[in-house]
Amino acid sequence: MSRVAWVLLAVVVCIGLVAPFGDWERAMTVIPTEAGLGPSPGHPLGTDHLGRDVLARLQLATSAFAGPGLLACAVALVLAVPTAAVSAYRGGVLGSATRFAFTSLAAIPRFVLVLLVLSIYGDSPTTLALAVGASYVPLLGEAVYERIERLRGEEYVLASQAHGLAGGRILWVHLVWFACGRLIGRHLLALFGFYLVLETTLSYIGGFGVQEPHPSWGNMLVFEWGRRSLVDPGLLAPGIALWATLALTDWASESLGEVEHG
């Protein structure tokens, strides 16, 4: 069943990745004569108060988090995993110094760190993605470090060395890929979810994140708030999409945990 979560999540991410290359006239063009329409065959989720198609804007809004969310994951993966893996496997002064760095950085609240970076370097989606990815490095690094440090003394690592396996293969294949693969996967899904919530929150609050007229699920919510009834599909749709995507990341993440512990 968890495959359903992975497939649906992949569909959402794919829509977000290809969206910037599509023709989104229906999502962007203001048509005052069609403002505030209810659901109809031409507009399945109706239109917003500027006459733009809500479904089209909902789809286009996935580009606000899909690409940058993946970029944040890539940043965390590239910075945290090799650093943590090598230092935990080697141990000694390098290991102690890396762990101290992870612990010190983890003490700074992530949200504060991200806002600080945005204040200094501007609030483009790329800057936000880099900041979120970098802020997650201590958390992911600490998790990978702790596991490899625990496993490197295991009998099977010693036996692999005794069989003549090179240290690099033991580290990257046996310890990182096989023993930490699912752990890393769970963390990256959590990071993707965190990016989605953060981007939605920032664009909901305004000032940071994606701003009108470009759609984000956050600014779509705030843009229609107070102008529609609480059960109107045009108002509910971004909120439901946000909840459903977070539920999918959680479901997919749980499937990794079940396999590992089962």
């Binding site: 295991e154 009998e155 099977y156 010693l158 036996a159 692999s160 005794a162 069989h163 096989f178």
Partner: peptide
């Protein structure tokens, strides 16, 4: 070569 004491733990 090496034959470990606890074979169960010596396998990945």
């Amino acid at each position: 070569g090496y034959l470990p004491q606890d074979a169960g733990r010596a396998l990945d």
